[in-house]
Simulated scan of single mutants.
Amino acid sequence: MGGDPPSVVAYGSEQRVRLPALRAGWLTQTFVHWPFRPDQVRTLVPEGLVVETYEGVAWVSLTPFVMAHVRPPVIPAAVPGVPTFAETNLRTYVRRPGGRDGLWFLSIEVACPLMVGARAVGAPYNPGRLSVSRKGNAISYVGSRWGGTPSYHLAVRPGEPMMPADRDVWLTSRWRAYTRRLGALWETPVEHEPWPLSDATVDVLDETLTSAAGLPPPLAEPVVHFSQGVSHVRLGVPRPVGPLATPGDTT
């Protein structure tokens, strides 16, 4: 199922994305990380990727945030009409055999219907109604897919800034995402500044995204981080990096 990494992943980006396909900011982001047995996650990840573990445990993370100033690289963020919208990812941690680590998305909820076009490169986008709001020190994330299910409501109160330990960096810092398309594994690189992390207290956590993805109840209560976000995200062009051998896969 994949062993623990020999050392912590890099806190800053592992590569430069010199010719980005897209620029954006990922703001007001909360990370909710649940531990699972590796075999419980393995069935949700295609052959051709190894489920990564930390201290013998696989992790799945719910990450709601604000996707800000999404634009092609030639358009400045200050141009009127550049979209900002809520997005929520459900993701796990993987590695290509003998290759580099990254993320596998179990689902991506998005409030911008135009982003559903990213399904063309295999990203599992689902349009829905999503919101991010603040009241005092509390931040609330609410969302549901069109049709009403699955859904989530998360409310957190960010704490003091933290100096990330190895596990904190391992859970939050990944520099590529994998998708599948046309029977192949695709890799999308990403570059941004290090996450400024704080701890966070959960006031409300009610969600059905994990069960909709096929996950059982987790092994323990979640680890939670909050970040004001990163403003200089550069997403590279997806590229095929190898075939997939998932039985019955027709994508």
Rank of each mutant, 00 (worst) to 15 (best):
P80N: 02
V51G: 07
T63M: 14
P97I: 02
T28K: 07
P38C: 07
T28R: 08
Y93M: 05
A24T: 05
Q29W: 00
S61V: 03
P64F: 08
Q29P: 06
G48N: 05
P38L: 02
P83S: 06
F31Y: 10
G12D: 12
V70F: 14
Q40C: 02
R96E: 14
P97A: 08
E52W: 03
T63E: 13
F36V: 05
V9P: 14
E47R: 15
G48C: 05
R23L: 15
T63I: 13
R95T: 13
G81I: 15
F85R: 06
F65V: 10
T30E: 10
V60K: 02
P76Q: 09
M67K: 07
A77I: 02
V9K: 01
T88H: 00
L27C: 08
L62S: 00
G98F: 09
P97W: 06
E87Y: 03
Q15Y: 05
R16T: 08
R23H: 12
T63H: 07
P83E: 09
T28P: 01
P35G: 06
R96A: 13
E87C: 04
S13T: 15
A58H: 02
A10V: 01
V17P: 04
P97R: 11
V70M: 10
F31N: 09
T53V: 11
L27G: 02
R96K: 13
H33N: 14
F65T: 11
F65N: 15
F36H: 11
T84L: 02
A68M: 08
G12I: 00
G81R: 06
E47C: 01
E52V: 00
A68L: 07
T30K: 03
L62K: 00
Y54I: 04
H69D: 13
P80D: 01
A78S: 15
L49V: 13
P72A: 07
M67I: 00
Q29K: 08
W34Y: 10
V17L: 06
D39A: 11
S13D: 13
V51N: 07
G99L: 09
H33W: 02
